[in-house]
Every structure is written in C-alpha cells, then in structure tokens.
Write a protein that binds this DNA or RNA. Sequence first.
DNA 1: TGATACTTGACTGCGGCGCTCGGGATTTAT
DNA 2: ATAAATCCCGAGCGCCGCAGTCAAGTATCA
Lengths: 157, 157
Amino acid sequence: MELNTKGRYAVMAMADLAKHGGHGSVPLTAIAERQQISLAYLEQIFQRLRRAGLVDSARGRSGGYQLARGIDEITVAEIMQAVDEPVEMTRCMLDGLAGCVGSAKCLTHDLWRALGDHIRAFLSRVTLRDVLQGEPGRIAMPMLAAREPGTVEVAAE
Amino acid sequence: MELNTKGRYAVMAMADLAKHGGHGSVPLTAIAERQQISLAYLEQIFQRLRRAGLVDSARGRSGGYQLARGIDEITVAEIMQAVDEPVEMTRCMLDGLAGCVGSAKCLTHDLWRALGDHIRAFLSRVTLRDVLQGEPGRIAMPMLAAREPGTVEVAAE
DNA sequence: TGATACTTGACTGCGGCGCTCGGGATTTAT
DNA sequence: ATAAATCCCGAGCGCCGCAGTCAAGTATCA
C-alpha cells in the first residue's frame, strides 16, 4: 500500500506555496530548491495543478504561481486528485464488475470500496492550513481507536 | 495511491477460507480456482500468512489450510500486515527524519503519518466476518462525512 | 534585448511487482 | 509400497509504469 511521489510532491509544493506565498507569485525554482524536488518534474506537477484550478500562474520575469483560493479552501484530497490517477484500490471498481472474479462481485468488493471512500473522506477533511500548522489534534483525529482482536467493538456513530 | 495484489489476494483468500472452511483443511487448489489466483503465487502468500500465525497448515494428501482463529478474531489489518511491506506513506517515516527534506521534518510529515495511522485504524476494525457479510453499515462507517471546501468544520470528538 | 519564468510534449532508465519454475518433503489413499 | 495430493522453499525473470530528463517554445519584465 503505497503513495507515489507525484501526490506527495504536490502536497509538499502546495504547502510550500501556502507558506511562502501571499504577496505575489512564487517561482518554481524557489519551491524546487526548498523542497528538494527536480524543477522539471515540478513543472509537470504544476501543469496539472493549474488545469485543476488550484493555482494561478504568471509568466515572464517575476512570474510564478500562487494559490487560486484561500488556504482553508483547498484540501489535500483535491490536490492529490489533481495530480494522481484516482484513488482506486482495485480494478473491479473501474467499470462495474469487470475486474471481479468471474461473474459476481468478489468477496472483498465492498471492503475495497469502503477503504477508498474512507481515505478520500479523510483527505477531504484536511486543508492546507491544517497541514501547515501540523495540528496533530486536527489531523490525527483519534476518533477511530484501533481495536484489538477479541475486544468488544464500540458501535459506530 | 495504490493497493498491490499481494494484500488484495491475501484478503480474498482468507475470506474464501473463512467461507469454505470449518470442517477440515481447504487445499490451495480450491481457493486458487474459486478466486482465480495463480496457485504458485498463492503458495507464496500463504507462507507468509502461516508464519504470521493466521493460518494452520496440514501437509500431505487431504492437507490444506485453515484459519488459526475465529473469523471474528482476524482483522484485515493483520492479514495485510502479514503479506505486505508495512503501510508507509513516505520514506521519512522509516528511520526518524532520514528521508525528510534536509534537516527538519518536511511540512507534510505529520500528514502522512496521520494518514497511515488512519488507514491502519480502519483496517483494524474490519474482521473477516465483516468482509464475508459485506455489511455495508459496518464497513462503510459513514461517521466521516466528506467536507466540502468552505464548509464549517465539525470539531473532532 | 536579454534574462527569467512558465508551457508543452516526447523520451527513457530501471526497480520492483507479479508471477513462473523446479525441486523437495510429508502425509494419505489404495 | 507406491502413487497421488498437498504443502514448502528459493531462485529467477518479463515487463510496465513511476520518476525524472531533455529540448524547444512562449510570455513578461527590467
């Protein structure tokens, strides 16, 4: 279960932009240097971010990028969706039941869908401000304590 | 953001074992056929499941595998942990801050840790029984509604 | 007019996932 | 006993796509 660099870099770069932006555009060279990401690779990523409407670009000298919205109005989910292929856990999700075993839904069909939904829900709740502030209380959200096997479960809700 | 086949197959196979087990051992050939997974590949996976203590094996003719515990006492998290590399979102998790940018924690350090924790917590709450029953209410857990950007957030807890 | 920066698309190395292969050990049916 | 069925184990390998490079162009400003 892995996260690729495109999504990771995108969030890092957007956080950097949120931190060092505010007055005018920030050139990619600055972000690349601070975050130690290849400039050419960053350019690819920002094309997608721009097309998704998450950043505005300014060309020419003293150009660069800035956030298209406030840091409370951009979520990590949006960023990752902009640069990554969709967060899919398995192929049976793609079109109907095509990838499922034989005819019917595979036994784990609902599980993977629920996992995907869960991840997306989590990432939808985290804004750029949350990331910057590192707010553990906000991000960690201990509402879901891990349950040891054999323990009585607490009803959801 | 992707899930690899080892984890997926492992859960599928364990669900199959839970469904068709009960009286005696189930041979891998049966699981391989039902779940459409290569037998040789399944064998690899079951080695790990056995070493993790999740299944018991019986050799020889009419041998096979059976669950080492009840279906309420095996979680999806355990299964995936047994066959997969750990669910890590980034390299900076591995040893301290080694993979982080330069000296300090990267801006997104806490975020990825929180995401990993969250996923593990979710998977720790789902047992084999839940998977078999497909219980959407149990698995889906609508407790975390996705928040639209701009909406007032509800305090966690 | 030159420097800076974004824009675009094509190209590529290579690591590791996903799987195969071959051989061996053990138990049971007959 | 012998064969068949099954688990056990490690080595090996094709290929795809991630991660990143390269080259050429366009816009803007000092």
